[in-house]
Design a protein around this nucleic acid. Structure first.
Length: 1164
RNA sequence: GCCCGAGUGGCGGAACUGGUAUACGCGCACGACUUAAAAUCGUGUCUCGUAAGGGAUGUGGGUUCGAUUCCCACCUCGGGCACCA
């Protein structure tokens, strides 16, 4: 008997395969096709480690099985050879990456060949081969042509110490891979691919493909589709509240013009006009103009009630003052428009500021009211101009006054009066005629109103008094005020927190009706609800009135009493905040709105923010924060309220505060969030920290409420466009030329590929540019369009590029006209019918989704680590090519499975630094490729990560040797299939061995057919470990049946035919030994193309079955039954069993449960 | 935090849709063969108990005649996403 010599056998068999090219696939076959794919390796300098082959073996087993099932199989291999490790190696050693790659791929190729894969080596590809990347560049140009490849500012990881840009994988967690220092984000123009345009389809089409659920889930999470609503919150502010707090010393501060005296007629006149408000005329010091500003700030206490009135140069000074105070004063009044030209030189510092500031748009934004006072002088704004400005700034409360009234003609005075009238309000309707009204923000008006309030409170009408008493008595939960000032009105009653005004009217006259309507309208605009009752109503039916009030109060939600108190309510519209939410139904529970610190709205409303200094500090801080800090999960949420402004909840008109917080991300949704602490943990956490209210409100249908508040339903994705630039050497050059005249121009297709030039240094430059940028010969080219001077794009593609389409190239790897011939693509990607269904055998239809009709690579196995990037990217490229009608299917891969990692001994990761990397070469040398293959398939579930154990390999080797021994014996006894037992051995034999040869053979055959079935099925579901365990059991039984020496007693035996069947199902796992024994048994054709054995269903089914007998649920014994025994038969058998009788003595069975051919449970 | 997946002997792991838990392999022990060793073969190997019997599938509960499997709560580990509104 020959000993098993793996070295000799494997070498011989591999040579034979290579010589006959038996695994080269052809498109000419009439057989059904099968395209099996594994992720092509990155050829590192370290060579293969034992983790690499595991997935390849798995797919090899499947491919080999398919061949034996009659398929034309494509199982290709190639190299994904662009990438950082090679580049870094080149930087270190100065060796050319191409040379290093060649060396590495040679090693990998040798190693893979020694493992006996049935790869079609004739289609081998390499992403770094210009003949390959020509087409990667070509596809890029198609993206470019469709506008899906574009340049945009984006961030790169920047190491400030090494001064180079880092790839994401080099800057994991914001730490530089090389030096360990914290990286920064640096903005750079980069190429992007518009994958977001495909987000919807990438999500939806997952329904079509057969991927593991968790792969689909991960992809879906990554794409992050969420359907929700966009809802607008109005922003409002109370102008008077946007100013700094504090007692006002001055209501008006007059800044005179250049070298003017406070005693000038105009200033005195103005002061008189403005009194009794407190007015101060600043003394013109005559000192340098720059100092004036400081002087004003030092000597005059300016606060939020101060209005600065500037004249001529005083306007510029006022501007500066206002700027220094962060725009926190009431406003600026410009008396004269411009600086007198002859003083321009003196006033230059201000003039410059002035010209910049004196932009009405700017002033509109920065200050509250603007009063333009014009004078008659030749250089200033004329009254006429003032009027035009007033028109322009309508609604901004402009007053145009002549600064020298004694110069005014009658007509001008009339205009002045009318403007003043238009912009002020009468106190009460009765006072309207003949009198000027006043602003409530104006202290003198306030005082007048206040006096009237006191008077009215002291003299209430009968109805007022009655209602007041009952409101106080019956509605104790609410705060009511009577005779309260709102804006320019004195209302009878107001419930402050509900913003409800209650008015009691006397008899209604027509003129009064109109007035009341107008008054109601204004109050409504201010956010107040108004209930009106008649005197009589209150007096006669107080209960009814009260009921109405309660009803109204209950239907209005609480407001946060904004604008209450002195000064009155004055609401100004400041635009709106758009928020995105998936929970529009929680809109009623909104307690605040949060903006991302970078939100563009903030700078727009800056002048209205009263705590700007604090806000600005927060924004600066969050910009400074490093990646590590911002993603730190232990980080407490922080934020700052934007004081002085409020958002209006469109659902109930409630005012809610507006915050900024960096837990809100600018680039997702709208960069703004409505906070519902009752329903959102983050909001809750934030609310608890900042003592914000948490309210519980009923939920409404999200769609309905969105519609109601004028929002819209939208779909948002987390997926961002793909940053496609790398500032590296070892990648595909981006085939674009940058022309000064024509902009970005595609390299003409005939000039492809744009080959990588030879460079001296592979080190990225310290400007963050690719090393290619330094090769001026290569960079400087003529523009293909205008032939003018132009520069090549020096960024290269990421190494995801080549792998995004490589499976297409395999279909036609040598083509230099197109990336792959359409017919060949159609051949390899067309839908493959389910082979099991084709046979019409329901029992063997494993409910595998064969994606009939979908097409694509039939089976693609890869690692979970590629689920989100590679898999998504290649699906995106494929769909894009599908849209260009260049590929025949909507999806690249019909079926995807994943494998687990091979860990080092003890379950830790295999790594060079830990020194626990196992090189397959060593294992192949000692145990052989077949043993390694068997072991890698047997070590654990294919999908799980399993620890390597050199100690355990021996089991697989023993199995292989056992197979060899059986084969040797079979070969020797080819013509005498049945053996006989020696005398005296019989008693020692196990039951099967005692049987007659026919019976014995049948027992073995039954086991064989069960094993065929199990192995066939297990391979399909990648349960390779249990397939092997079944074959081990079979081999042991086979050897047992053989091992009896010749003798007189007949016994079971192994036939050649049965052994060959076993060899066939083993061959995908251990192809070398199977091939060798197969040949030794006289077969001429390779076992790879023999037919996959079919199992005999009648042999798989047992006639005699052992079932468990339970008594009260506990297994007590087992009995033998016939497969077709009726329930009655089985019960009888069970109840008469000796063991059972022992338990059931003196008891009567209450109930007997029989599960056919499984178990019988007797309850007593 | 969220989403997946998993916890079974000394170890890797089996157990189909709820039906004899621990297949197969490693290791270990003993035995056969051998002068001996290796290799190979055989027997045994969850645990307590002499036995009858009892207890074990991360923990605690539940459903069921019967639970590794289904449900609830919790713990631990692995993977993914990470303030995604």
């Amino acid at each position: 008997m020959k000993n098993y010599n793996h070295k000799k056998i494997e070498k011989k068999v591999q040579k034979e395969w290579e010589k006959k090219k038996i695994y080269s696939a052809s498109e000419k076959s009439k057989k059904p096709k099968f395209y099996g794919l594994i992720e092509f390796p990155y050829p590192s300098a370290d060579g293969l480690h034992v983790g690499h082959p595991r997935p390849y073996i798995g797919m090899d087993v499947i491919s080999r099985k398919r061949r034996m099932e009659g398929y034309n199989v494509l199982y290709p291999i190639g190299w994904d050879a662009f990438g950082l490790p090679t580049e870094n190696y080149a930087i270190k050693t100065g060796k050319k990456p191409a040379v290093v790659t060649k060396k590495n791929t040679d090693t990998f190729r040798r190693q893979l060949k020694e493992l006996g894969f049935s790869f079609d080596w004739s289609r081998e590809i390499n992403t770094t081969d210009p003949k390959y990347y020509k087409w990667t560049q070509w596809i890029f140009l198609q993206f470019f042509k469709k506008g899906l490849a574009y340049k945009a500012k984006s961030y790169i990881n920047w190491c400030p110490k090494d001064k180079i840009g880092l790839a994401n994988e080099e800057a994991v967690g914001g730490i530089c891979d090389r030096c360990g220092s914290a990286t920064e984000k640096r903005e750079k123009e980069q190429w992007m691919l518009g994958i977001t345009k495909y987000a919807e389809r990438l999500d939806k089409d997952l329904d079509l493909v057969d991927y593991p659920e968790r792969v689909k889930t991960q992809q879906r999470n990554w794409i992050g589709k969420s359907e929700g609503s966009e809802i607008k919150f109005k922003i409002k502010c109370n102008p008077s509240l946007t100013l700094p707090e504090g007692e006002g010393e001055y209501n008006y501060l007059i800044l005179p013009g250049w070298e003017s005296s406070p005693n000038d007629h105009f200033y005195q006149w103005l002061k008189k006009e403005l009194e009794p408000a407190k007015v101060e005329i600043v003394k013109w010091s005559g000192s340098a103009t720059e100092k004036w500003v400081d002087l004003v700030l030092e000597n005059y206490k300016i606060n939020r009630n101060t209005i600065i009135i500037g004249h001529s140069l005083g306007v510029a000074v006022g501007m500066k003052v206002i700027e220094k105070l962060n725009y926190k004063i009431a406003g600026l009044v410009s008396v004269a428009g411009f600086v007198e030209p002859k003083f321009k030189d003196h006033a230059r510092p201000f003039a410059e500021t002035f010209e910049w500031k004196f932009n009405f748009q700017n002033i509109k934004e920065k200050t509250k009211f603007i009063k333009i006072l014009s004078d008659k002088s030749d250089y200033a704004v004329s009254l006429q101009q003032g009027k035009i400005l007033a028109e322009e700034l309508k609604g901004q409360f402009i007053e145009v006054i002549a600064n020298k009234p004694h110069f005014c003609g009658k007509a001008e005075q009339a205009i002045l009066n009318s403007i003043l009238k238009e912009n002020t309000y009468p106190l009460t309707p009765s006072q309207r005629e003949g009198e000027f009204g006043y602003h409530t923000t104006d202290p003198k008006t306030w005082k007048a109103l206040q006096d009237r309030v006191l008077e009215m409170r002291n003299n209430p009408t009968q109805a007022e008094d009655k209602l007041w008493q009952s409101l106080r008595k019956n509605l104790t939960g609410y705060h009511f005020r009577r005779q309260h000032i709102i804006d320019r009105f004195i209302v009878d009653f107001v419930c402050v927190e509900k913003k409800l005004v209650i008015e009691i009217d006397g008899d209604i006259h027509d003129y009064k009706k109109t007035e009341d309507e107008e008054r109601t309208k204004i109050l409504n605009q201010l956010g107040f609800g108004v209930l009106r009752f008649l005197n009589n109503e209150v007096i006669k039916n107080k209960e009814n009135v009260l009921k109405k009030i309660i009803l109204k109060l209950n239907s209005v939600s609480n407001t946060l009493s904004f604008g209450e108190g002195q000064g009155g309510v004055f609401v100004e519209d400041l635009g709106e905040i758009k928020v995105f939410t998936t929970r529009a139904d929680t809109l009623f529970g909104v307690t605040y709105v949060v903006l991302a610190p970078e939100h563009e709205l903030i700078s727009k409303i800056k002048p209205r923010i009263t705590n700007w200094a604090e806000v600005e500090k927060y924004i600066k801080n969050s910009k400074k924060k490093s990646e590590i800090e911002r993603t730190d999960d232990k980080k407490e949420k922080t934020g700052v309220e934007l004081k002085g402004i409020k958002a209006i909840n469109p659902a109930n008109n409630e005012e809610v505060p507006i915050w900024i917080a960096d837990y809100v991300l600018l680039d997702y949704g709208t960069g703004a969030v409505m906070a519902v602490p009752q329903h959102d943990n983050r909001d809750k956490e934030f609310s608890e920290k900042y003592k914000l209210p948490i309210i519980n409100k009923p939920l409404v249908d999200a769609q309905e409420i969105t519609k109601k508040v004028d929002g819209k339903m939208v779909t948002k994705f987390k997926l961002r466009d793909w940053v496609f630039s790398r500032q590296r050497y070892w990648g595909e050059p981006i085939p674009i030329i940058n022309c000064e005249k024509c902009g970005l121009v595609a390299v003409p297709e005939k000039d492809l590929p744009v080959k990588l030039p030879e460079v001296k240094s592979y080190q990225p430059t310290d400007s963050g540019e690719s090393p290619l940028a330094s090769i001026s010969k290569w960079v400087n080219v003529k523009c293909p369009k205008c032939k003018g001077p132009a520069k090549r794009e020096t960024d290269t593609m990421p190494n995801w590029a080549g792998s995004s389409w490589y499976y297409l190239r395999y279909a036609d790897s040598k083509n230099n006209k197109v990336f792959a011939d359409k017919k060949k693509l159609k051949y390899w990607l067309r839908p493959t019918p389910n082979p099991f269904r084709r046979k019409g055998n329901k029992d063997t239809d494993f409910s595998l989704s064969f994606g009939e009709g979908l097409g694509g690579v039939d089976w693609y196995n890869g690692g979970m680590e590629h689920t989100t990037l590679h898999l998504l990217y290649s699906r995106f490229w494929h769909k894009f090519l599908y849209d260009l009608k260049l590929v025949p299917t909507a999806e690249p891969y019909k079926k995807r499975t994943s494998h687990g990692m091979v860990l080092g001994e003890g379950g830790v990761k295999m790594s060079k630094s830990l020194g626990n990397v196992i090189n397959p070469d060593d294992i192949v040398k000692i145990y052989g490729a077949d043993t390694l293959r068997i072991y890698e398939m047997f070590m654990g579930p294919f999908e799980d990560s399993v620890a390597w154990s050199t100690e355990s390999i021996i089991g697989s080797r023993r199995f292989v040797e056992k197979v060899w021994r059986i084969g040797e014996k079979i070969a020797k006894q080819k013509n005498s299939p049945l053996e006989e037992y020696p005398k005296g051995e019989v008693e020692k034999l196990s039951t099967p061995a005692k049987a007659t040869p026919q019976e014995g053979n049948k027992i073995l055959q039954k086991l064989l057919h069960k094993t065929i079935k199990k192995v066939s099925e297990d391979i399909e579901s990648m349960r390779f470990n249990t397939a092997i365990s079944a074959m081990m059991i079979l081999a042991t039984e086979m050897e047992k049946s053989q091992s009896r020496p010749l003798g007189i007693q007949k016994g079971p035996a192994l036939t050649l035919e049965d052994y060959e069947k076993f060899l066939k199902i083993l061959s995908p796992f251990a192809p070398h030994i199977a091939e060798e024994i197969w040949a030794n048994l006289g077969n001429k054709k390779s076992i790879s193309f023999s037919s996959w054995p079919k199992w005999d269903e009648s042999l798989v089914k047992d006639q005699e079955i052992k079932i468990a007998v339970q008594i009260n649920g506990k297994v007590r014994t087992e009995i033998l039954i016939q497969a077709n025994d009726s329930e009655e038969d089985v019960k009888k058998k069970a109840l008469t069993n000796q063991t059972v009788l022992r338990y059931t003595m003196n008891k009567t069975p209450q109930k007997i449960i029989y599960v056919k051919n499984r178990v019988i449970n007797i309850l007593c």
